[in-house]
Amino acid sequence: MTPFDYTRAEGSAAAVKQVSGSAKATFLGGGTCLIDLMKLHVENHDLLVDITPLPLDRIEATAGGGVRIGANVRNSELAHDATIYKNYPALSEALLSGASPQLRNMATVGGNLMQRTRCPYFRNGFSPCNKREPKSGCAAKDGYNRSHAVLGVSEHCIATHPSDMCVALIAFDAVVKTHGPKGERAIPITDFHLVPGDTPDRETVLEHGELITAVELPAAPWAMRSHYLKVRDRASYEFALASAAVALEVVDGVIKTARVALGGVATKPWRAADAEKSLVGQKPGAPAFAATAEMATKGVAPRQFNGFKVALVRRVIVRALETVAAMK
């Protein structure tokens, strides 16, 4: 770690001003991602503005029947919130499948949205990595890429977006609320994260110094029948090899609404919109689910060590849909 200054935020506006005023300042949430990367010298900041004192820690109902989640709500608190647990169960499951209890107790919603990839070449601090050091190359493409993405990749970056929470949020059409140097914004989460393209260092649409204040989930009665399924090597405490957040609304034996979002296999939280559309109007069951899984993995670009993810994520999609279809 290089030495840095630390200050506690005294209001959102002041925090935004402090961070946007200096290229080497940033927000500090629970610190579980940021401090780790600073210890590895992957990120170096002169100033950390601790935003956890800000009153952004509430989970409240919105007028439209949805939920507003403050950016500082801890991952564990959100996972165990009664409304979330009942109305958006895949979000609870996604959160609880992530990290460890200790980490979830520290990690915030804002920090989780902004967490960075686990690509070993990004994290080691010296290998060529376009994300860490633009135009330096990508060591992962021809390196050890078992954990890497097969969807949304580019010639410049194949790093996986690691979040579980975001996969559920994207299935539920969440909206990210921000407060930036230019005022407030509401960003649909599908637009929030960016695929790498030729600027893998740009991971979200946030501007420097723009603060996430909340995440809103619109009312979605069908979300009660949702499920998050995550496959990894060990039983707990590991990022996804492949995961899916799915939801089904079935009316009169026919699918009316479907959601299929993927984790562990893509460069950003991945919404398989075409696959969802293909389900609408179909009878829930093995043939429809298999076709959907096929469609969700169209355009995959596997590398030497991650080819298995294609078959694996298809099976994850099918199993998750079967599970939801069987829910009362």
Binding site: P120, N124, R234
Partner: peptide, 24 residues
């Protein structure tokens, strides 16, 4: 422990070098 095609250790921490946890 994974060595890549350049001989680098690519999983040198306890998140990526997987030891069994209680759930295992």
């Amino acid at each position: 422990t994974v060595y890549d095609g350049r001989g680098l250790v690519v999983n040198p921490d306890l998140a990526d070098y997987r030891l069994p946890v209680h759930a295992d």
